[in-house]
Design a protein around this nucleic acid. Sequence first.
DNA 1: GGGCATATTTTGACTGCCCA
DNA 2: TGGGCAGTCAAAATATGCCC
Length: 201
Amino acid sequence: MLLKTRGTLTAAEIAKELGITSEGARLQLIKFMEDGLVSSAHESNGVGRPKQLFSLTELGHAGFPDTHAELTVKLIGLVKNTLGEDALQKVIDAAEQSGKVKYLAELEAAVTLEERISGLAGIRTREGYMAEYIKESDGYLLVENHCPICAAAKTCQGLCVSELNTFRSVLGNEVQVDRVDHIIAGARRCAYRITRKENFS
DNA sequence: GGGCATATTTTGACTGCCCA
DNA sequence: TGGGCAGTCAAAATATGCCC
């Protein structure tokens, strides 16, 4: 909790806050380091042995509550209940339009279909979807192994529809994009089959 | 460059508490 | 009662800058 609220600290500083000796604090920190919750770095400050500074790792930070998902679900509910379904749909449409513009700009240099799919997978991975694509005999499979907006998507299915629309727009008219796996429906992943339309092959 | 001073870490022995 | 765990204490080890 001290490392979370105060940032990087030495064993002596932690010991002082906890009312124990620095050796006692250090023993605890070593255990946290063995568990991957804390990392250390050395900092030289003139005369004497360099300080060993302790800070939380990503795993350590993950041990604290994150209520983003709950907040998002709450906001979606508030928009729906106070402004109506139409207002919520307008918000989703605006987000979809914004997403399309952003994706198209990033994929401007991609010429072939495979380059566009590869680029799209890269963008989605950066956004936390752990995306990848698989080349198949009749097209491609875009796979998203994680859904960072799962809680929101369960509350508002429009987000998933918007996502599919975005993929179709970004990949172009010559391909058909179908969702074949859906996390919301209980699948392990979301997957999209991408095939060339008959009249474009 | 080497010895010294300083600040900090490391280590081992020990104590006390809890629990099966 | 013994084992495990958490913490204290003291001494040794370590890393670095300063000064001659």
